[in-house]
Amino acid sequence: MPGAVAPALTVFAVLGVVLAVIDARTHRLPDAVLVPGAGVVLVLLGGAAVAVGEPLRAIGVVGGAAGAFFACLGVHLARPASFGGGDVKLAGLCGAVLGWIGPDAVASGIALGFVAGGVAASAALLAGMRGASIAFGPYLLVGTWGRLLAGP
Score class of each variant (00 low, 15 high):
G131Q: 08
A48N: 13
G143C: 05
V17C: 11
L125Y: 05
A38R: 07
L15E: 05
L112Y: 04
I134Q: 04
P103I: 13
I59S: 07
L34F: 03
L15W: 02
D87P: 14
A96V: 07
V21E: 10
R79I: 13
V35I: 14
L73N: 10
L126T: 14
V119M: 12
A4S: 05
T144M: 13
V52P: 09
A78E: 09
G86V: 07
A120D: 14
H27R: 05
A123G: 12
V35G: 02
G84N: 04
V33I: 10
V61I: 11
V40A: 12
V18P: 07
V75T: 08
R79S: 14
V41S: 10
M1L: 13
G117T: 04
G92I: 12
G63K: 02
R25I: 09
A13Y: 08
L149F: 05
G46E: 12
V21Y: 06
A123C: 14
R79H: 12
V35S: 05
L148G: 00
G146C: 03
V61K: 01
V106K: 02
V115E: 08
L56R: 15
L140Y: 05
G92S: 07
V41H: 07
C72P: 08
W145P: 12
G60N: 07
V75C: 03
G137H: 00
F70P: 10
F136V: 04
G63C: 01
I110W: 02
V43L: 10
I134N: 04
C72M: 15
G102T: 14
D31V: 07
V40T: 14
A6D: 15
G143P: 07
W100Q: 07
L141E: 01
V14P: 12
L29R: 09
F83I: 07
L125S: 12
G46Q: 13
V119H: 06
R28A: 10
